[in-house]
Nucleic acid binder design. Structure first.
Lengths: 207, 207
DNA sequence: TATGTCGCCATACATTTGTATGGTAAATGT
DNA sequence: ACATTTACCATACAAATGTATGGCGACATA
């Protein structure tokens, strides 16, 4: 059923998929052309016609960005995982992506949030397990009870946030771990962001 | 910081958010106008200018669908949950959406997949708990070990799928539940789709 | 009464976008 | 040697899209 693609067609298809993941919408012909250095939209048009003929995309006539992916769900979108974050004891954070996860297209992460893979079991009572992906948004102000990712002495942790009068407390859900208590203004501490959700791909289990 | 919106501006902002969730991209001015019965794009343009002035959106000049939501992460997107699905014993499936879940800008579910809320604990050994949202894709052929949603005698269940020579077995991860064994061709049975992921919003816990 | 805001319309225009046609060059196959 | 496929270009055009300007009626308010 799935006909063979030429190398160029493959690249363009991948670009469309990635553009969609990044921008939340398909690219225009001009944007595709620009990305590949084409001086002409007609070139892109021809490749898109080939892709449609082979069944990889569907096009809406005369609609701006009217490219639909028909293979969307086989072609999962690859998103970078920026590091591992300890739910138990702190782990070193990595500067670059350590891995990428195949998120289904449901997972159009907002531009300002990012993914971290959880390691450790200190959140098991919140049903977050080692290997799960947490979606972290750095532009939300944490309120008490939020799960936050924090940098603490050059390591990253996921903990539950409680701000009290003169201290900030970081709790684990797992009672085996003691809360971390921080005075306001402690230097080697920074809130990275608030955990807005947890995602787990089921293929890992099925495999 | 967030200035007041007029009723019309509010409606248009909501439309943009919903359109984006449904189509994976922002609408054009013409599409907004069409939705509200405006005979004119200039009307929409004026409202968008007001929305931008008040800081709710950002616009990319002369770019098709160049509307960015700046309030995206406060304004979580509402997606329909089509029913509840029993992880333990079967539950009746509902014809319409029973609820909606606030998904973070993880907004764009692929058009052909849908969400179900899990009820029951038969999948707890797979770390899926009551209240979690499973993302179901009906266009994937299940292979052994996949978690599937199936209709069985007018009720929906989530089970692990194993196809054997002459029977199909549906397993729970929880050993308290016995596997369901079905002969090929059993009438009141239908695979609805494959569970491709699990999502849990953290706000529920924080609240 | 005068002034301003809000919501909408009509018209007009430049740019963007999708589309079609024809042409060139390289690689491949027969 | 010839035809085919692939990949690109140039040009052209219609439709879609974003944008600007001015006008009209309803409503509130100073």
């Amino acid at each position: 059923m799935a006909k063979e693609l030429t190398a160029t067609q493959q690249k363009i298809l991948e670009f469309i998929i990635n553009y969609r993941a990044d921008h939340g919408m398909p690219p225009t012909l001009a944007e595709i052309a620009g990305n590949f250095g084409y001086k002409n939209r007609a070139t892109v048009q021809q490749h898109l016609q080939a892709l449609e003929k082979k069944g990889y995309i569907k096009r809406n006539s005369r609609v701006a960005r009217g490219i639909e992916l028909t293979v969307e769900d086989k072609y999962f979108v690859s998103r970078p995982v920026l590091g591992e974050v300890a739910a138990g004891n702190p782990l070193t954070i990595y500067p670059d992506a350590i891995d990428s996860i195949e998120l289904p297209t449901i997972a159009h992460t907002p531009r300002d949030s990012f993914l971290l893979r959880v390691k450790g079991d200190s959140l098991k009572d919140a049903y977050v397990f080692s290997g799960d992906i947490v979606i972290v948004n750095p532009n939300i102000l944490p309120v008490n009870g939020h799960f936050v990712v924090a940098i603490l002495d050059d390591a990253a942790v996921v903990k539950r946030f409680f701000k009290k009068e003169s201290v900030i407390e970081l709790h684990s859900e797992n009672p085996e771990y003691q809360p971390i208590v921080l005075k306001h203004g402690y230097e080697n501490f920074k809130i990275v962001g608030v955990v807005i959700g947890v995602y787990r791909s089921m293929d890992k289990i099925a495999g």
